[in-house]
């Protein structure tokens, strides 16, 4: 399966949230979760939200 490469699309967004349409194009950006929800409400096309960053590396798992 071809992976979805978002590296170029996310390049100009260093923080906040982005909304991606079904073709993985960024259709909205906002600083907070609350703001991005406001922006995408009422959009006819379904979108999926992703936190914006220029560096997604270095995640550490947590345990109880």
């Amino acid at each position: 399966m071809t992976p979805i490469d978002l590296t170029k699309k996310l390049k100009k967004y260093k923080s906040g949230w982005v909304a991606l349409d079904k073709n993985h194009h960024i259709v909205a950006h906002a600083k907070t979760f609350s703001d991005i929800e406001k922006k995408v409400q009422g959009k006819k096309e379904s979108v999926t939200l992703l936190p914006a960053s220029d560096n997604y590396f270095g995640f550490i798992t947590a345990n109880g």
């Binding site: 399966m1 071809t2 992976p3 979805i4 490469d5 978002l6 590296t7 996310l10 390049k11 960053s53 220029d54 560096n55 997604y56 590396f57």
Partner: peptide, 8 residues
């Protein structure tokens, strides 16, 4: 599909 995301 896996998503490819940028790293610094």
């Amino acid at each position: 599909p896996y998503k490819i995301l940028p790293t610094s």
